[in-house]
């Protein structure tokens, strides 16, 4: 979607204006997206997810036991997400954050916010 949008801007502005037309701005910024991380088999899948600031992350628990998505550094904590339940958070602060399931210490993953 983003690539198609930039190409369209370049074509309409002409080559000489491409740089200024393609500079990041309110109109060029991709709309916030929702990314999904599945908790299944006592793992986060995918175990690394990269998002843009302002995007949302949804954790879906496909296991039979409760899990959490908890990061002290990124300052989010879903608390218990029951079986077949989900939890959403919007991430605005750029960084590279590890998070865990607070119930199952073997479950670890990472979210990168650009």
């Amino acid at each position: 979607m983003r690539i198609r949008g930039l190409r369209a801007a370049g074509a309409s502005c002409g080559l000489g204006l491409l740089v200024s037309c393609a500079q990041p701005g309110a109109t060029d910024r991709p709309p916030p997206q929702t990314h999904t991380v599945v908790m299944e088999g006592l793992r986060f899948r995918p175990d690394t997810v990269t998002v843009n600031a302002g995007d949302s992350l949804v954790w879906v628990n496909r296991d039979l036991v409760p899990h959490s998505a908890t990061s002290a550094v990124a300052r989010f904590d879903s608390r218990a997400i029951g079986a077949d339940r989900s939890w959403r958070v919007s991430l605005s602060r750029p960084g590279d954050f590890e998070y865990v399931c607070s119930f199952h210490p073997t479950m670890k993953a990472r979210v990168r916010v650009r």
Binding site: G41, L42, R43, D63, L64, V65, H104, P105, T106, M107
Partner: peptide, 16 residues
């Protein structure tokens, strides 16, 4: 099959 990973995680947790 679905519950097996929980038992594995419990075992690792208990060993720790």
């Amino acid at each position: 099959v679905k519950v097996r990973p929980a038992f594995v995680a419990h075992l690792e947790h208990a060993r720790t």
